[in-house]
Design a binder for these strands. Sequence first.
DNA 1: CTTTGTATACCTATCGATAGGTAGGTATAC
DNA 2: GTATACCTACCTATCGATAGGTATACAAAG
Lengths: 188, 188
Amino acid sequence: MKSDTREAIMEAGRKTVQAHGYNGLSFRELAKEVGIKSASIHYHFPTKGDLGAALARRYWEEAEAAFDGFWAETPEPGLCLRKYTNVFRLALENGNRMCLCGFMAAEHDDLPDAVKLEVQAFADVNVVWLAKVLSSMDASGDRMMARERALAIYAAIGGAQLMARSRADISVYDRIVESYRVAGLIPS
Amino acid sequence: MKSDTREAIMEAGRKTVQAHGYNGLSFRELAKEVGIKSASIHYHFPTKGDLGAALARRYWEEAEAAFDGFWAETPEPGLCLRKYTNVFRLALENGNRMCLCGFMAAEHDDLPDAVKLEVQAFADVNVVWLAKVLSSMDASGDRMMARERALAIYAAIGGAQLMARSRADISVYDRIVESYRVAGLIPS
DNA sequence: CTTTGTATACCTATCGATAGGTAGGTATAC
DNA sequence: GTATACCTACCTATCGATAGGTATACAAAG
């Protein structure tokens, strides 16, 4: 098996970035949580940029797998979209955290290029998957329209999460997402 | 008149937070831009929290004034909402920056309480103003519905800004906002 | 079966840079 | 003379990163 320590670093790192961002990620604090010395983290991730890129990459890989799971096991697209919006709700449930790549998107100017690319990859994963689900719903199924709508839904969900986080109130997320459905932005 | 230096600090501080967040705001860097020493900033703002709160407060005060100006001089609500969405576009035009309070919303966990309150006040200003405009459009005018929709629109616009920033592509913002209108989230 | 070499996965100790904040001095204006 | 608006000098804490040492494991060589 892969190194337990490396896994522990990534797990703690993910949680930290979801709460304090890339700039709030500290090798010393991370080392303390894992139970090693900060110098040892450099053994697994030479630079902070390497760690950041690895975290963002794993984040979208796991998201892609989860989304594909929804699509495979949920025949009803409306329900599939509810599972999707629930993923972003889970981050809030978990200590009022937010999407790792959403936070990093805000920190765009301070990110190493390698990290920026992985953050964009996460957005792509969301948009491609959403476009696929949307296309399956609309019989007239304009692919380009579906992609534009997918981008809008992903952005809107990210905004809802950000708002709820700033209030530390998960019900804010629920209300906003419900409004998206009422307005017709997210099909039911 | 009020101190020119104090104004210069706030102007430079606002731009920095819009690009690097509250955590990316440094007294030394700020002092360099203004042309004074970092210790002198403490004369105007005793702590970083004081500066952060002052920045966020001025931000929502100016936003409120601008929004009220739109409402006063623009009889057509649809056009009024276009002026609103354009405000958030301007931040992106200005060096791919984002809303100061949007960035701080992400940094929620690292903010002094006084700053958190001002960030929430900015959101309130947006929601209250949007609800007012929405109420004027809908004859059936349910006030509660308007407020929910207002919250959704504000969150969605923040998400659109975040997405566009992460791509450093203002056309992404335009496309997303247009999708919001097409979907009916934002009335035309 | 023992010795030797090498890669793994940590460690201690330290570097230069930067952070927010403080104490106390100084020049100007009223 | 006193308040304003700066300054120099310095504090402690933290940052990512590096150099070099160490304990363990395992494979090849004698």
